[in-house]
Design a binder for these strands. Structure first.
Lengths: 249, 249
DNA sequence: CTGGTTTTTACACCGTTTTGACACCGCCAT
DNA sequence: ATGGCGGTGTCAAAACGGTGTAAAAACCAG
């Protein structure tokens, strides 16, 4: 990936600002990618896999908030939001959706650079590999960027909740997720007790994704605990390295 | 570390602001620690090991910048800097020294909270790295993250209680656990007298995990006391007390 | 209004947990 | 030795609760 030259993706519709950012950032040793619309921005984020994204909230086609949400569905790349609006609620919304920082225009270049360095520092510290944009196991394929799901080469249509549930399982593929965990991530922390939901939707997912829903190959029930998405290399999995590894710091 | 209630350390010399922060933050479910000087702040950071630090730059005894530097010498706890000064160079200095965010007074509480959440998010993500915790002894392998158990390369399905019991033994591998201890950890402190439970389940575990359940290699009975999970390196070592070893059946 | 989606409700089924009964072994006192 | 005794292992029936299934009702956006 980014060895020497970190890549920054600038999503900004106003040409003057975009050009200004391009020159200053590339002058600071960044590889710069540009997009002037939300759609192009999302596409380029997936295609070029930048190290950091600078995102203007005021885009012509899609709300910047929405762009943040879409990005966070599949990646943890640092996002720094730029905005002309200084409303507190905008900041809260963007930050809570997963943005890493929020600057209001006009902003100083030095400050932007410093905040970018801080964001990159975080990413470097936690970098657990860029979350893969396409997950595959057996015949099942989930494209987190395009929000498409395939069984074999056949696309499957999922409802919003079905898709959300599936992405949660994908992001934790192989691990067991408790009912509460799934309910919190999909329906929000207020519904952690509605255990029915999960069963109903798991059944629907199985009906759509499994060849034989009665004997699921992917969506595994862990009775009394929750569910798990089976990964490709199931039983033959080798021991990682040492008998016991503590969680790394 | 932080179980339910995240702890925030507020380092701020002006009493009104400090009190204001204390009430709002504790109202938001934080455990709040306070310091009014840099020195006290550094001491408390070390002593209480908070999840996040809110640091005012204008302190009487030491520069806030210096506090940041000192903290970063030994910890990566998120630091959010508050300052009355809006100079760009101050922000750059603080951020480049390792501060995670920088707010200028006056600031909105909502924004502060959102930025704190963002900072905690980062910390959580780098904290919970992909450390696979796998316990191994002989042919037996227990993956505590995925909640999977293998004998050889064959996965074994365990019921919730069976698995819970096994994890308690794993966490105390090699040590003897009394019946009461096991009952308390698995069934809860109300059932510490139902010693029968342990026997029934120990049998089921042996049936699933041991090659020859009648002569267990892993799940050892310590008669009159409880049970013990044998660890890898202990097979060679025979009972230290008696030089004569009994004929094995 | 309509079609798709989400939420509820109801019920049959099956695995798990609990419970009870009994065989076994080693030890001690008779 | 022998018989009792406490701790242990074995087995399986019964009670329990989680899970899968289906479909109706409520909801919502076009």
């Amino acid at each position: 990936m980014s060895a020497q030259e970190p890549t920054v993706l600038v999503i900004e519709d106003e040409a003057p600002i975009r050009h200004f950012l391009r020159t200053t950032l590339s002058g600071q040793g960044f590889q710069v990618a540009e997009a002037s619309t939300a759609e192009d921005g999302l596409a380029q984020a997936a295609a070029r896999n930048p190290d950091i994204i600078v995102l203007d909230l005021g885009l012509p086609d899609l709300d910047g908030i929405e762009v943040t949400r879409r990005l966070r569905e599949w990646t943890a790349i640092p996002i720094i939001v730029l905005s002309a609006r200084n409303q507190e609620q905008d900041k809260v919304a963007a930050l809570d959706l997963g943005a890493d920082d929020y600057l209001t225009k006009p902003f100083g270049v030095k400050e932007l650079m410093a905040r970018m360095r801080a964001a990159l520092r975080h990413a470097a510290r936690s970098d657990a590999g860029p979350g893969e944009a396409v997950f595959t196991t057996g015949e099942l394929r989930v494209d987190l960027v395009r929000r498409q799901v395939f069984v074999g080469d056949q696309e499957v249509h999922l409802t919003p909740i079905e898709y959300k549930l599936l992405t949660v399982l994908v992001r934790n593929a192989g691990k067991v997720l408790t009912h509460r965990q799934l309910l919190k991530d999909v329906w929000g922390p207020l519904h952690v007790d509605e255990a029915h939901y999960v069963r109903v939707y798991m059944r629907q997912l199985r009906a759509k994704l499994e060849a034989n829903p009665a004997h699921p190959r992917y969506l595994i029930t862990e009775i009394g605990v929750g569910y798990r998405l089976r990964t490709e290399d199931e039983d033959k999995e080798q021991r990682p390295s040492s008998p016991i590894q503590k969680p790394s710091r």
